[in-house]
């Protein structure tokens, strides 16, 4: 299980990309994982066409949750917010790139949850979770 801490995860956890909040911004949302108390605060800047140009985030939590925020943040740049909102669980799990145990999946998905809840509200996130788990 030391697999979980392969180079890319430790690299992102130690050298977080796009770390630090953007102010002013066009998207600002904070979420936490009630199971473990991990938090993630995500801010975005969009251009006139709705394309994400800058990502800034801060959080506290385990290496998996922080690395996931760092990895997802990199991918969001250049994406339209509409496309970003349509990302699913598997997209993030693929970024992590190796199988996670059930409890750690929640850690990895905190970044996506923050984006989706900020964009669509909590109900929508529950729908995504239920659909993907079914």
């Amino acid at each position: 299980m030391y697999d979980m801490y392969r180079e890319n995860i430790l690299d992102h956890a130690k050298h977080m990309r796009n770390h630090g909040l953007l102010d002013p911004n066009d998207f600002d949302h904070e979420e936490h994982n009630p199971l473990c108390g991990d938090t993630l605060h995500l801010t975005l800047r969009l251009d006139a066409d709705g394309i994400i140009r800058e990502v800034g985030w801060e959080g506290s939590g385990c290496a998996i949750s922080q690395a996931s925020a760092s990895m997802l943040g990199e991918r969001l740049i250049g994406m339209s917010l509409a496309d970003a909102k349509a990302l699913n669980r598997q997209y993030v799990l693929d970024l992590i790139g190796f199988p996670l145990t059930m409890n750690r999946v929640k850690c990895a998905l905190l970044s996506l949850k923050t984006l989706v809840v900020g964009a669509y509200g909590h109900e929508h996130w529950i729908t995504i979770e239920d659909r993907d788990e079914a």
Binding site: M1, M4, L35, C36, G37, G61, A63, I64, R104
Partner: peptide, 21 residues
Amino acid sequence: IHAHDVAQMLDADGIAVRAGH
């Protein structure tokens, strides 16, 4: 090292501890 990561690494060595609040 975040407590979750501590617990995960201990698990790799067969040791069950809890992490969280």
